[in-house]
Structures are given as C-alpha cells and as structure tokens.
C-alpha cells in the first residue's frame, strides 16, 4: 500500500457503555476506501460491539462515526454536518453520513453498509435465491411503486425483478451455489451458508461490507476460497471490507490494515507486518505479564 487512501469510514472516540461495563473505551480508527481492514483481538475485546455500533444495532454512548460515500468528504462538510442535527449531507463527491445518528435499517439502505453475523443469520425457510432477492428489497420496493404498481403486474416491476434475479445469479455463480438456488437456505451445509450470507450482503450493493468472523468453522480449502472471494469483492466491486477474524492466516494474508482491540481499547493499529510484531499484540494474544511487555518494548527500542 502506498500513501493511506482516503478513509471511507472514520471512527473517532467511540465509547460504548452498558450500565457499569465499559465495552469500548475511546476507540478511533479508519477503514480505507477500497481496502480490507481487519479488527482483531482476544475474545471479549469488544470487536462485535464496534460492529454493532457501526451498523446501528447499538447506539454508541459517545463518539463520531463518519462514512463518506462517493469520495472523501471535506472536513468543512463533516463539521457542518456534525454541527447540524441532520444525519447526512450531500458533498461534492457524494454524501457523508453520521452513522451514530441513524437507525440500523437506514445505515444499510442509505449509507450502504452491509454486514454478516457471527452466528449466521440467513432466512432459513426461504430458498437461496429468495434470500438474495430479499437483500434487494429497497430497489424492488421502489420499482413496484410501493407495491401498488407491482400488484397490477406492470412491466416496470417485472423488469426490475428480472434484473434482481440476474444480480442474484451473478453472486450465485461467484460463490458456486447456482445448483442449489432453489433449495432452502437452512438446508445448506455450514460453509455454504457462510458464503451465502456474504453474497446476500453483496446483493444489497454495499460500499462497506462488515464481516463478523467469516472464516469461523471453515476448513482450509473453504478458507482459501473465502480469501479469494474477499479479494475479488475488494478489487472487482470496489466494496471496502471491514472484518473481524480470529484466523490469523486470513487476516495476515488479505488485510491491508489491522486494528487490534483488547478490553475495549485499541492497542495497535497498522499494516499486518507491523501489528504482527507489535509486542503489545503478542502479549495480548499470549497472555504475557505487563512487566515483560515493558521489557520487550525496551529491547525493541534499543
């Protein structure tokens, strides 16, 4: 990576408190446009909580989450939006959104942030194809004239539905599930469900794709397919990716930038090689005493 690309998502001083528990403590990082940013850390570090704040499932206690679509928003735009009580503002390049002010479904629909879940959340009783069509709900809803035109069976809706099916088929081919398009999503094997959830998120046409442990429970072959899929999503579709992952082979191989959390605080942030060798990260993962960390840091400094 050359100079850091203009950030798509900027997280500033994010704090989330559940009663007496401080789940995230003043975390700031950015997710680069057109990059893969990994969020790692030991269990309970607050990674999923960060995701839930970004996607609007939690309302952060404090902090600013800025997402600029189309291109970098100027600081003046962001300041003007922050000072106003509005949720979004049109900019020269596109639009800028303050995610902490938006409800979850608007973040997905307008700011174009899609996500997957740690425990897969497909629509198990609907077919694979239906899952991908539901993901395109908002476009189809408009095309159906908020149901009225669709009820009359007008051509406009039928064309929109055909386009939606074509898009679904594209992603089915991509994740090699075309043969199972008409089977219930709940009947698929685990690895296929994981891929289908990513395809469903992509069918909503996101700018930012948030993946919560996409490689969990995958075998080595599936895991390497996943890496190829994620790389292709980044390079061919211009979708930036933010992912939580415990599988270090995945993290180190595909991510451009790694953010490490521990006990709700950011302990490291940088390109994968640097994070891998960061003594604080090593200590967090291996559970070394604080004194030893200080010693190692001193050694490195020398």
């Amino acid at each position: 990576m050359s100079a850091p690309a203009a950030p798509l998502l900027t997280v500033e001083h994010l704090t989330m408190r559940f009663g007496g528990l401080l789940a995230i403590d003043d975390v700031s990082f950015t997710a680069a446009r057109g990059g893969i940013t990994a969020l790692i850390g030991p269990n309970g570090a607050g990674k999923t909580t960060v995701f839930n704040c970004i996607t609007g499932f939690y309302k952060p206690t404090s902090g600013r989450l800025t997402l600029s679509r189309g291109g970098a928003a100027s600081p003046a735009d962001i300041d003007a939006l922050t000072a106003s009580s509005r949720r979004s503002r049109k900019t020269a390049a596109g639009a800028v959104y303050l995610l902490e002010r938006m409800p979850d479904h608007e973040i997905a629909a307008h700011a174009k942030v899609a996500r997957t879940f740690q425990n897969i959340r497909l629509f198990p009783g609907m077919t694979v194809l239906e899952n991908l069509i539901v993901a395109q709900h908002n476009e189809l809803m408009l095309a159906s004239g908020l149901t009225v035109l669709g009820l009359l069976g007008l051509r406009r809706y039928r064309d929109a539905e055909a386009a939606a099916v074509a898009r679904a088929q594209f992603w089915l081919d991509k994740i090699a599930l075309t043969a199972r398009a008409d089977d219930a999503a709940g009947a698929l094997p685990y690895g296929d469900q994981r891929r289908l959830e990513i395809a469903r998120a992509m069918c909503s046409g996101p700018d930012l794709l948030c993946l919560d442990e996409p490689a969990a429970g995958l075998n080595p072959r599936e895991s390497s397919d996943l890496k190829a899929l994620l790389k292709s999503i980044r390079s061919d579709h211009g979708t930036s990716i933010l992912l939580i992952e415990h599988d270090m082979s995945v993290v180190m191989e595909i991510s451009d930038h790694v953010v490490v959390l521990e006990y709700g605080r950011k302990i490291s942030d940088g390109p994968p090689e640097r994070v891998r060798n960061d003594p604080k990260v090593i200590a967090a993962y291996l559970g070394v005493e604080d004194e030893e960390v200080a010693k190692v840091e001193a050694e490195i400094a020398r």
Partner: peptide
Amino acid sequence: LPIGRAWEALREDEIACRALGI
C-alpha cells in the same frame, strides 16, 4: 412482491432484515 417477501423474511429473522435495510 417485495413487501410479501419482506413479511416472510421478517418471520424468519428480524435482525437480518434490518441489516439488509428493510
């Protein structure tokens, strides 16, 4: 129609619906 599919999706998983912008 999209509305009917959204109803069924709501029955299947409300949280996933919200994550998809419904």
